[in-house]
Design a binder for these strands. Structure first.
Length: 356
DNA sequence: CACGGACTCGCAATTACGTCA
DNA sequence: AGTGACGTAATTGCGAGTCCG
C-alpha cells in the first residue's frame, strides 16, 4: 500500500545547485570517491568548470541549467587531513595550500533569498575563516577547537565527525579525552544547540524539496551559502529525512487504522446478516422444506454461485482433488426468498447461462 | 580472484538544548 | 521564576557499500 504524502519531490533535480554536466561522467553513479576527488580538484582549479555529481545524475535536468547562474564556489575543504583520514587518492589534491580567499556570500544566490546575514553560526565559521586565512592554526586545530569548545556565546561544540577519521589513533585518543573532559570540566564542554534562522531553514527546506540527499559537493555549497558547517547541513538533512519518515509512518498508521475500522464494521455487518439468515431458516417452514441451497464460490473466478442439493445428497466433490465439483446450474435462490435478501440477485457462474 | 581493512555514508536511537505555554 | 512538553540540533553506534593493498 502506498500513500501519497508529498513532503518533497525527491525525483526533481537539485535545481538551484544544478551545474553543467559532462555527459561522459553523468552515469558514474557509484564511484563516489572518484567523484569527490575530481570535484574537489576541479573546484579548486577551475570554478566555472563544474562537473556532475552522482546525486544530480539521478534526475535529468542537466540541460536546463543553461542561463542559470553557476555556483562560483571556492570550496576549501574543512580540515581534509584530520576531518577524515584522507584516502591516498585524495592526498594528491591541492588542499594543503589554504588560500583563505573564501568570499562569504559572494556565491550565487541559487535563486533563493541571499544567504547573507544567515549567521547563526557565523561566529565559529568566521573564526575558522580568519584563522585559515592567516594560516594561524591547522585545520585540525580549527576543527578540534570546534569539538572541544566550551560553552562560549554562540559557538557550538563540534562532533567527532567534524574531524572524523575512523581508526585513527588521534581520534580515538580525542574521543577518550573528550569524554574524560566531560567529566573533568563539569559541564564546560556542554554542547550548545543553535537554532537555525527562518531563512536558513527555508533554504534548507527548499534544498530538501529538490533533493532529500546531498552529495559532498552540494553539502559544501549549501554550507557555504548558509554559513553553516557542512556537518550541520548533513545533520539537518539527516534529521529532516527522519522527520519525513516519521510523518509517513504516522500517515500509514492512520490509514491502516481506518482500514481496520472499516473491516471491523464490515465483519459486524456480515455477522448480523448471518444471524438474520439463520433466524429466517428456523422460522420459515417453507424455507425448511425447500432444497438445501448453499453458496459456493468458483475457485477459478471466485464468483459466487448458488448450489441446490438435497439433505441426503451433499454437493459433488471432485474425487481426485477433493475440491469443489463442477459448478451446478444456478437457480434462483431461494424460492421463498425474502425481499430483503442482501445477496446479489441470481448469482451465476460466468460460464453458465443464468437461469431464466 | 578472494579477502580483510579502511573509508564513507545513511539510518536509528538517543541525548540535550532552546522555546513556549 | 519554575516547570514540563515539545521541536529539533547534535551525538553515537552500527550496517552496508566501495575501494585498495
Amino acid at each position: 500500500m502506498e500513500l501519497g504524502l508529498s513532503l518533497g519531490d525527491a525525483t526533481k533535480p537539485f535545481g538551484f545547485l544544478k551545474e553543467n554536466k559532462h555527459p561522459e561522467t553523468a552515469e558514474r553513479g557509484h564511484h563516489q570517491e572518484e567523484e569527490k576527488t575530481q570535484k574537489f580538484q576541479e573546484d579548486d582549479d577551475d570554478d566555472d568548470d563544474d562537473d556532475d555529481d552522482d546525486q544530480s545524475s539521478e534526475g535529468d535536468g542537466s540541460d536546463d541549467t543553461q542561463g542559470e547562474t553557476h555556483l562560483q564556489l571556492n570550496l576549501r575543504p574543512l580540515a581534509p587531513v584530520h576531518r577524515r583520514r584522507i584516502s591516498p587518492r585524495l592526498q594528491s589534491l591541492p588542499w594543503s595550500s589554504d588560500n583563505g580567499s573564501s568570499e562569504n556570500g559572494s556565491s550565487g544566490n541559487m535563486g533563493l533569498p541571499a544567504a547573507k546575514g544567515l549567521d547563526v553560526n557565523r561566529l565559529p565559521a568566521a573564526a575558522e575563516e580568519v584563522s585559515s586565512a592567516n594560516s594561524v592554526g591547522s585545520p585540525f586545530q580549527r576543527e578540534f577547537g570546534m569539538y572541544r569548545r566550551p560553552g562560549n556565546g554562540n559557538q557550538v561544540g563540534g562532533s567527532k565527525r567534524d574531524f572524523e577519521a575512523t581508526g585513527n589513533d588521534v581520534v580515538e585518543a580525542e574521543r577518550a579525552s573528550s569524554r574524560a573532559s566531560d567529566d573533568d570540566e563539569n559541564g564546560l564542554n556542554t554542547r550548545k544547540k543553535l537554532r537555525l534562522t527562518k531563512e536558513q531553514s527555508a533554504f534548507l527546506e527548499e534544498s530538501f524539496k529538490e533533493h532529500n540527499t546531498l552529495n559532498p559537493k552540494q553539502k559544501l555549497a549549501l554550507a557555504k551559502q548558509l554559513n553553516l558547517r557542512p556537518r550541520q547541513v548533513e545533520v539537518w538533512f539527516q534529521n529532516r529525512r527522519a522527520r519525513t519518515k516519521l510523518k509517513q509512518t504516522e500517515v500509514d498508521c492512520e490509514y491502516l487504522k481506518r482500514c481496520c475500522e472499516t473491516l471491523t464494521e464490515e465483519n459486524r455487518r456480515l455477522h448480523k446478516e448471518l444471524q438474520e439468515l439463520r433466524a429466517l431458516k428456523t422460522t420459515n417452514p417453507f424455507y425448511m422444506q425447500s432444497p438445501a441451497t448453499t453458496l459456493t464460490m468458483c475457485p477459478s473466478c471466485e464468483r459466487v454461485a448458488t448450489t441446490t442439493t438435497t439433505a441426503s445428497a451433499p454437493p459433488p466433490v471432485s474425487a481426485a482433488s477433493g475440491k469443489m465439483g463442477p459448478i451446478p446450474k444456478a437457480i434462483p435462490f431461494p424460492l421463498t426468498r425474502p425481499r430483503f435478501f442482501p445477496f446479489p440477485q441470481t448469482p451465476t457462474h460466468p460460464n453458465q447461462p443464468a437461469a431464466s
